[in-house]
């Protein structure tokens, strides 16, 4: 399926349209937010107390008197930056290693997969906190750590998809020609497992976004006063019953992005014919 026809197939389903719309909206917002926000994200209003929505402040003020809408618009930038690059890294190394394991088999496969099993057995959130505590929470550190941990599951998936392909004669034929492993992985197998990986990357992205927000919520993601959804929710949580807006706004933003990504993943799976529950009739 060419890129163009894939996009058309995506746009044909309602979930694809809505999902793609949400994701593009958030990405666009992250890019232009600094230019369009009405206030400085750090500026405190003279009215110190948390305040409900008004004409000046559409989503109200938080407990420190900062404009919630401004902070919500800006709050996804760090998260998107980290998770987009994190996902790319995770998918790249995970699928490559998985394909090599599936193709090589034997001892190589055994070593790779047992290592993967070991890492999967470790509760990675704790590991993550440890790394951030020792190396700081620079975006680069976050990207690499999240990229590493979220790639582990990809190894398994890519290996399973590869195992379906290696038994096919075209791979055998490439082997008999004397092709190098790298050539077989990139030229023969990758184009055939691409669809699975594409859907998986969408799923990984939404999980990573949740994890990043969870880290921020725990106080490890971004350093205050940088606006971030997870952090905003954590800070405003205690006053939620009095001032719901500072919690609701970032929550809506975060959930709409994650729902958007999931809808895209869903529509993608259907468009690529990976969704087995939708048996195709002619």
């Amino acid at each position: 399926m060419t890129r163009h026809s894939l996009l058309m197939a995506l746009l044909r389903s309602p979930s694809g349209r809505i999902g793609l719309g949400l994701v593009l909206f958030h990405c666009g917002l992250a890019l232009v937010a600094p230019l369009i926000v009405p206030y400085d994200f750090n500026a405190q209003s003279e009215v110190l107390d948390a305040m409900g929505p008004s004409l000046q402040h559409w989503a109200g003020l938080d407990t420190l008197g900062r404009d919630v809408l401004t902070r919500t618009f800006l709050g996804g930038r760090q998260a998107l930056l980290v998770t987009v690059f994190g996902t790319i890294i995770a998918i790249t190394w995970g699928s490559f290693l998985g394909m090599v394991a599936g193709l090589k088999g034997g001892r190589v496969d055994e070593w790779i997969m047992r290592t993967v099993d070991t890492f999967l057995a470790i509760p990675f959130m704790i590991f993550l906190l440890l790394i951030i505590a020792s190396f700081g929470n620079e975006p680069m550190v976050m990207i690499l750590t999240l990229g590493f941990f979220y790639g582990i599951g990809v190894v398994r998936l890519a290996r399973a998809a590869t195992l379906d392909e290696v038994v096919k004669d075209y791979v055998q034929s490439a082997r008999a020609r004397g092709e190098r492993t790298l050539t077989i992985v990139v030229k023969e197998i990758l184009p055939n497992v691409r669809d699975v990986l594409l859907v998986e990357s969408a799923m990984r992205w939404s999980w990573m976004l949740l994890a990043f927000s969870a880290l921020s919520f725990l106080g490890f993601g971004v350093t205050p006063p940088t606006p971030d959804w997870g952090l905003m929710i954590a800070n405003a949580r205690i006053y939620m019953s009095l001032a719901p807006w500072p919690v609701l706004a970032p929550m809506i933003a975060l959930s709409s992005l994650i729902i958007g990504i999931n809808l895209v993943a869903d529509a993608l799976a259907k468009a690529l014919g990976l969704d087995r529950t939708q048996a195709r009739v002619l």
């Binding site: 096919k168 004669d169 075209y170 055998q172 034929s173 030229k187 023969e188 184009p191 055939n192």
Partner: peptide
């Protein structure tokens, strides 16, 4: 069917 890579 199997000996030619369907994506090439």
């Amino acid at each position: 069917d199997a000996s030619l890579n369907p994506r090439q």
